[in-house]
Each structure stands twice: as structure tokens, then as C-alpha cells.
Amino acid sequence: MPPTDTTSPADPLPERAADGTPGKPPTRVPCGIKFEKVVKRFGDNVVLDHLNFEVAAGERVTLIGPSGSGKTTILRLLMTLEHPDGGIIRVGDDPLWHMERGGKLVKANERHLHEMRKRIGMVFQQFNLFPNMNVLRNLTEGPVHVLGLGKDEAVERARGLLDMIGLADKEDAHPTQLSGGQQQRVAIARALAMEPTVLLLDEVTSALDPELVVGVQDLLRDIAANTDVTMLCVTHEMGFAKDISNRVLMFDQGRIVEEGTPEAIFEDPEEDRTREFLSAILAT
């Protein structure tokens, strides 16, 4: 079941029943993202230097920029795979890496991170399906063991997603038996099965053979068109970025050098740095 279908009253996700009105189907609040003076260093290498930006709930934002400009780092900070060295990241209204204790923000513990991760899903460049599980279990493990869904309900949800990604006949297949494009579609479904309100996509088609790119992009176009999930997408495919995103952020050395609608950035960029970068990727 794609995340549009999230109004089913039987849904046990606690945070969605949080409005506490009994008898009313819980509704999920879409989450925005806010970076406030975020600093990230690797050793002496300052990758993000007091970065500020905001993404509205339900907005689709594409990040572009040269290699090493910090795009992946931004997504990894949001997925809690890296921790920031300074500043505050908010997902929804809550700080991701901090908790409020007595009016002060302190470093988050594992439980807070666990609560916050419920809102966030990520798809990786290299798919990273679990090779010790077949396709169906890749999609049901999270819903069963993290969201607490019943086995049948999780299987039903997984089959709905497999249907959506056009792989209904592959539920018993092993990840190694799928093509790269199929694996990536399963990885997208695995993220959606957790019903995130924010979806992070890091160059999800760049490891694919050219003829397999279209299938994955079409799937993401569908998701963008039919759900209200907030999307943060790193891609160098301009046509695709135009189709799915409301806004493009151009990064260089951990800073936003330019931002605007996809049309404005791709067709009429103002900054030299952006023009340079775009002509460089067009040349490849």
C-alpha cells in the first residue's frame, strides 16, 4: 500500500493516532525539514559550514552540485547515519539529533532517534536489499518488527507495493535473482512499506544500466504524483528532476549557491558556478 492509503483506521502507527480523538481515523501529519546552522566535519574537512535551508511538508526538492559538495552527507544526516557537529536539524517540528529536557536541547538518545526515524525513509544508490531474505521478507520485516503490524497485514501491504512496482510475480525471488532496476524498485517499496513522511533518494538510478533507469524513474514519478510524501532527491538527471521536483538547490562546497524552480535553474541559471556545473554534466 502506497503512503496515500494511510487513513485506514486499523493502522497501528502510534504517532498517527496522536491527535487522540477516538473514533476518528488518524491522519498523518506530513513533515517538513529544517537545517539550522548545521555543521558537519570529517576530521579537518568541513563539509557543511553552518548550513541553513528549509523544505516544506510535502515539497519535492532536488539537490544538485559537484562531487564532494555534501549532498549525500545531508541525506545521511537526515537518516541518522552520520551525526552533525553543530546546529539543529528538524524533521516535522522536532529536532532530530536533540531532545528537549527541562527547556534545553540535549543530545538525543537511541529511543528518540528511533521515534524520529519513523518519519524518514531512504533509498540508496546501491539498493542495499537484505541478501538473507527473499523479496517479500525484505518488505515485511520492517512493518512486522518495527511497526508491529500483524504478519498477514504486512504481507498484504507488501503485495500491494509489489503490484505497484510491477514485480508481483517476484515475491519469492531472492535479491540476487533480480536485475539492478528490479532491485532498486524493491528497495523503494521497502522504504514505502514503512510509510515514511520524508523520503530520501540518493542518486538512486546512477548505479543502473541506462535501459533500466526509466523503470525506476517512472515509479518515482508515480509516487511523487500520488502521495504527499516530502521528497529530498539527489540526481543529475535534469528531465527527471523537472518532473518530480518543485525546487532545485544547487550546492557547492557545502553551501547553497543558487536555488529556484527546476526550469529556472536548468534553463536560466544566474550563477556562473551553476552554469559551469550544468554544462559539465551535459558534456558527459
Binding site: M79, T80, L81, E110, H114, R117, K118, I120, G121, M122, F124, Q126, N128, L129, F130, P131, N132, E141, G142, H145, V146, R190, A191, M194
Partner: peptide, 25 residues
């Protein structure tokens, strides 16, 4: 490490990451 990251991304707890993803592999 990518397997640990994927397990983290579907919000497995540290113990679940070990038991359901890392140890079987």
C-alpha cells in the same frame, strides 16, 4: 556497512540490526 545502514534506515533497533541483518549474513 551498507547493510547496517539499510537496517538503520528501516528503523530496526540496534539489536534487531544484529539479529535480523548482520548475524545471518
Amino acid at each position: 556497512r551498507a547493510q547496517w545502514e539499510a537496517a538503520c534506515a528501516i528503523n530496526f533497533t540496534p539489536l534487531q540490526r544484529l539479529r535480523r541483518v548482520l548475524l545471518p549474513q
